[in-house]
Structures are given as structure tokens and as C-alpha cells.
Design a protein around this nucleic acid. Structure first.
Length: 171
DNA sequence: GCCAACGTTGGC
DNA sequence: GCCAACGTTGGC
């Protein structure tokens, strides 16, 4: 039985459009123990809401899936990385990352404002709680279903279609 | 840019 | 093990 999650990212850094373009992307840079433990609890094919934070309109921007379960986050070993952790070691890696895969884009994005109006149906969704800063959150099936029904989901960019009429120079 | 919330660090 | 100081997150 698959579990559901929510992952936050600043779209300036990495957005749902970036994930769609890249197809898959390692989710690195999580440096909070509770968030890390959530990453480690993820199973292959679990689904997550892709949340855009710290931007003009924060909200849920898409859906991804966990393509590969947790491995040591390589950025913790890289002195050049912002996420380098001198206290971590190859023998005892402190931080984990999962491989994420694009599933769908929210059309339109579900703003945090809208989610707040659904607070009752979403019970005590941690995302809506004051002062919440955790970047990896569990989502219950009920919360997932409710949020899922709030917008349409576009699963992939339509292939660029070459119109016949254009090829033969009509209109 | 402000500020509330909260995790982490480090002195004791 | 307490707690003050500090840093970070993220909405507004």
C-alpha cells in the first residue's frame, strides 16, 4: 500500500516544470532529521505533492512519484556544495535523498490560500499549521484524495504536434 | 524586509 | 540536561 507525501521546493531553485523537463531528479539537500526520516520511510512508487514555497504564490504545483528509495545524499560529502556536512562520513552517512519522478502538473496550481479554506476537510494537515517549516511531510489518503480533487492534473506536456496544414503551407 | 516559529548549538 | 543565543524557514 503506497504512502503519500508532500515535498517542498523553492521554484527559483527547482520547480515542477524543472522536474517535468528532467523527468527524474534526486531530491537532495534535506538537512532536518524528521524530514530525513520521512525520506527514509518512502517506498518505491509512493506519490507526493510537489509544493512551491517562498514564492509569490505558494502552493501545490504538481505530483511526483518516488522512483527509487533513499540512498545517501551525495551533496553531504561534497565540500563545494551548500549542503556539505563535515560531520557526516561515507561510513555513517547522516543525510538521505530519494529519486523523484514527474507525474503531473497542477492546472492551475493549488494556492496555499485555497488549501486554507479546506482546513476542516484536511483535518490537522501540518502544512496549514502556523510556524510549520518541515520540508517533507506525510499526507494521509484522505488528505491526498481531497487535495487531488481540487484541480486538474496534466500528466505530461503534449508532444509538439506538427500540423499537416502547416506542412503544406495552409494557414 | 519583517517576524514568528522552531531546530540546533554550545556553555554551564 | 537546561537554556540562551543563533540560524533558518517561509508566509506575508
Amino acid at each position: 500500500m503506497a504512502s503519500y507525501w508532500l515535498l517542498k521546493s523553492e521554484p527559483d531553485e527547482f520547480s515542477i516544470a524543472d522536474l517535468e523537463a528532467r523527468k527524474t531528479e534526486p531530491w537532495t539537500g534535506v538537512r532536518n532529521y524528521l524530514a530525513r526520516n520521512h525520506l527514509r520511510a518512502m517506498a518505491q512508487d509512493d506519490l507526493f505533492f510537489f509544493y512551491h514555497s517562498s514564492c509569490p504564490v505558494p502552493g501545490i504545483a504538481g505530483i511526483g512519484k518516488i522512483a527509487q528509495t533513499a540512498v545517501p545524499d551525495p551533496t553531504q560529502f561534497d565540500p563545494e556544495s551548500d549542503y556539505f556536512d563535515a560531520k557526516s562520513s561515507l561510513e555513517l552517512p547522516r543525510w538521505s535523498s530519494v529519486l523523484t519522478q514527474f507525474q503531473a502538473a497542477a492546472e492551475p496550481l493549488i494556492p496555499l490560500d485555497l488549501l486554507r479554506t479546506q482546513a476542516e476537510a484536511l483535518d490537522s494537515f501540518a502544512l496549514l499549521q502556523r510556524g510549520n517549516r518541515l520540508s517533507v511531510l506525510p499526507v494521509t489518503p484522505k488528505q491526498w484524495q481531497h487535495i487531488y480533487n481540487l484541480c486538474n492534473w496534466r500528466t505530461a506536456k503534449l508532444p509538439v504536434k506538427r500540423s499537416k496544414s502547416r506542412e503544406i503551407g495552409v494557414q
